[in-house]
Design a protein around this nucleic acid. Structure first.
Length: 301
RNA sequence: GCGCAGGUGGCGGAGUGGUCAAUCGCAUCAGACUGUAAAUCUGACGCCUUCGGGCUACGCAGGUUCGAAUCCUGCCCUGCGCA
């Protein structure tokens, strides 16, 4: 059996301690970090996303941070492309890639079996279909691609529009899902703190962010960088709720309370995604990761 | 003390004689995820269930009625106004 290049993934819900664990392991085992975070790719979104500072990086190179303007949507396909490039470059230098982050979709796009059809988003089509109702869109899809229609979430306009977009652009049905075999040997480590601990960490971290200028950051994005309220809302969590507060849609207490709840819900959605991965090695204590990594890098294969 | 308004599920809030275990929103729980993924979307949500249904419920206690969250009486409680 050929020796596959090794990659280590550190996943887990927000505030579970992925970042510092990743850096510690990268330092110990000669690694570099590839961030798998759909919001940390944007420049100027630092406090709200909990982006590592230069200093916290402790000399470990970080990839896929600050690679896009928040004005435009950064997509999973772009992530995959740039991520693959980063992996290749890290391996070339004889280092170990550590994919660290909480965006399960990005991790799968990069390493898993989620195929991303090579069809770019079409703003015109999307805008046109946006006006239609989900049942209408579903009926259209059923007609053009019964196979895809049978498995899709018929209420989710975003998915329906994407499926129709693929069909419209290629003139043929959406390719069925096929298992992709990764070219790498991958160790999946999942951080799963007990719920009470996680909730507390989420709460404490939110208080720190508020103290460290998170509100000013969002205001700056809107006033200085020209990021629309709508866009900030779409970016979710801190950007969504702080912008609503800045718009006067809610007072500060409501903003804080609702944001905290939203973050907790988000953490659960992340877990729902990661739980599906049968290869995930779940740990509660970050210290347990070391043994897994050591064995993975030393042993077999 | 008098007058007025009101007491409904974890919360907010509909319902004013039957089709109400009770619209809806929030919270909570579970889940989905083919280029927006911190986004988007779905289901469950009184208790029990062999999933057919059964049981207990709309402040408390009585009453009217074939039938009440809905009508009547008394009581308790809350808010506002007058004393």
């Amino acid at each position: 059996m050929a020796t596959h290049s090794k990659i280590i993934v550190i996943a887990g819900p927000t505030a579970s301690g992925k970042t510092s664990l990743g850096i510690a392991l990268a330092r110990k085992y000669g690694g570099e970090i590839i961030s798998a975070d759909s919001r940390q790719v944007y420049r100027g979104m630092d406090i709200g996303t909990g982006k590592v500072t230069r200093r916290e990086q402790r000399g470990i190179p970080h990839h896929l941070l600050d690679v896009a303007s928040p004005k435009r949507t950064f997509t999973a396909a772009q992530y995959r492309k740039q991520g693959q490039r980063a992996i290749a470059s890290i391996l070339k230098h004889g280092k170990v890639p550590f994919v660290v982050g909480g965006t399960g979709f990005y991790i799968d796009a990069l390493l898993g079996d989620t195929p991303l059809p090579d069809i770019k988003p079409d703003a015109v089509l999307r805008k046109k279909w946006e006006r239609r109702s989900a049942p209408e869109l579903f009926a259209m899809l059923q007609k053009k691609d019964p196979r895809r229609a049978a498995e899709i979430d018929r209420h989710n306009k975003r998915r329906l529009i994407r499926a129709l977009e693929i069909i419209e652009t290629t003139g043929s049905p959406v390719a069925p899902r096929t298992a992709r075999t990764s070219a790498y040997a991958t160790l999946f480590i999942g951080l799963r703190p007990d719920p009470a601990t996680l909730h507390k960490k989420i709460h404490d971290r939110l208080m720190v962010r508020l103290r460290h200028g998170m509100i000013a950051e969002v205001r700056r994005l809107h006033e200085k960088k020209g990021i629309s309220w709508k866009r900030l809302d779409d970016l979710g969590l801190e950007y969504r709720f702080v912008s609503r507060y800045l718009r006067g849609l809610m007072d500060r207490n409501a903003m804080t309370a609702e944001l905290e709840r939203a973050i907790n819900r988000y953490a659960k959605r992340q877990m729902t995604w990661f739980k599906r991965n049968p290869d995930m090695h779940w740990i509660t204590d970050p210290a347990a990761a070391d043994r897994l990594v050591k064995r993975f890098l030393m042993d077999l294969d």
